[in-house]
Amino acid sequence: MEFRYLGNSGFKVSEITYGNWLTHGSQVENDVAKTCVRAALDAGISTFDTADAYANTAAETVLGEALRRERRESLEIFTKVYWPTGPQGHNDVGLSRKHILDSINGSLRRLQTDYVDLYQAHRYDADTPLEETMQAFADVVRSGKALYIGVSEWNADQLRAGHALAQELGIQLISNQPQYSMLWRVIEPEVVPASVDLGISQIVWSPVAQGVLTGKYKPGEEAPAGSRARDEKGGANTVKRLLRDDVLTAVQELAPVAADVGLTMAQLAIAWVLQNTNVASAIIGASRPEQVADNVRASGVKLSADVLARIDAAVGGIAETDPAKTVSPTARPA
């Protein structure tokens, strides 16, 4: 496992982050989830990402239990706040001061830790003044409950405004967590250049495009049993937009590219996002421990210019690149 600095800070994270969206507390049983966390630790992963909204707080509980016997100083634990949680009352959502301060206490209790290394705004809250949000985050940092602040799926202008307020308040906004893969490149035109200027890194989710870039979904064929596309708990909804024959046909052209460099298609996809120097870490999930061991082999891989050109020839033409697709809700969800 290799490590990279997160943003313009002295804080390092593993190139591969283990995330538990759609798995812990939902898609897989708790004992399997804990086995996957153990596999991540054994593979050298030290960075773990979750959110209070995942499985309506259950994912944090599972992760906290899985990590509770580990040396806390050797781990980087991330969580997030924004989406509705708990009974989903009128203040159980958003980035108001009340919701942030209530939520960090709940997250720490479930994660069984005194602090998180990174506390992230899970989306931009159009209904709360940014000044209120950043002041609350500053208070969380000053209370010792979080070391650094990050965001998720903020556009370039939102990043600039948040970073400016963070500087005024004397805290460090060091990361953004966007979707990014060979098929979803919307951060490249605007978010990445702004982030480079501001000293913000990307911690990217869905580097294998919800499993599509593994090649397991074939054009004209039914999705494999046990795959995310067959998961009625929510996984199917996240992947269905990519299950088009033109996408799946193009993805199959990546198979010989991966074979030529001695990688699986999943490893190639993860290695590809890590070639972007603004990416500090790629988040992987797993429903089986062997998936973790396989994906971790992407760490440290250097892809040649020729290989990158072959990837672009295969899927570059169908990749989404419109920066306007980097969006947060225009109003808080009910």
Rank of each mutant, 00 (worst) to 15 (best):
K240E: 05
A156M: 10
E190L: 04
R160E: 15
Y180L: 02
E232Y: 12
N155K: 12
W154L: 00
E221G: 13
Q210H: 05
Q202F: 07
K216G: 06
Q179L: 13
Q210R: 07
K240A: 15
N176E: 14
A223S: 12
T214K: 10
Y148D: 07
W154S: 11
S201Q: 13
Y217Q: 06
A209E: 14
V151E: 11
L243K: 12
S152Q: 09
E232G: 10
L173M: 11
V196W: 03
S152R: 09
G150L: 02
E222P: 12
V192W: 11
G162F: 00
Y217D: 01
A164Q: 08
S195V: 03
Q172M: 15
Y148L: 10
K240C: 09
L243T: 09
Q179F: 13
A194R: 15
K240D: 15
Q210T: 09
P193I: 04
G150M: 05
E168R: 14
I149Y: 01
W154E: 03
L159V: 11
Q202N: 12
I203Y: 10
S201Y: 05
K233I: 03
A225G: 09
W184D: 07
Y148S: 06
E222V: 06
A161G: 04
I200W: 10
L183W: 00
N237Y: 06
H163M: 14
V186S: 11
S227Y: 11
I174K: 12
E232T: 11
K240G: 07
Q158F: 11
A194H: 07
L173D: 01
Q210G: 02
V196D: 12
D197C: 03
R185V: 11
L159R: 03
R185S: 03
I200Y: 02
N155P: 10
A236T: 00
W205L: 01
I187W: 07
G150A: 10
N176V: 01
N237P: 14
R230Q: 14
Q177E: 08
Q210Y: 13
V204K: 00
S227I: 05
N237W: 08
Y180A: 05
G215K: 02
A229F: 06
T214L: 01
V212S: 09
P224W: 12
T214S: 15
L173C: 07
R228G: 00
L243Q: 09
G220W: 06
V239S: 03
G220L: 01
G215C: 07
E153C: 06
E190R: 02
A161W: 08
A236S: 03
L213E: 12
A194N: 01
G226R: 04
S201P: 10
A229S: 12
N237T: 05
W205A: 07
N176K: 09
D157T: 14
L243E: 04
H163A: 15
S206N: 04
Y148P: 08
S175K: 08
Q167E: 13
H163L: 13
K216A: 08
S201D: 11
N155I: 08
G170E: 07
K216H: 03
P224M: 04
P207W: 04
K218D: 02
P193H: 09
K218R: 15
K216E: 14
V151R: 03
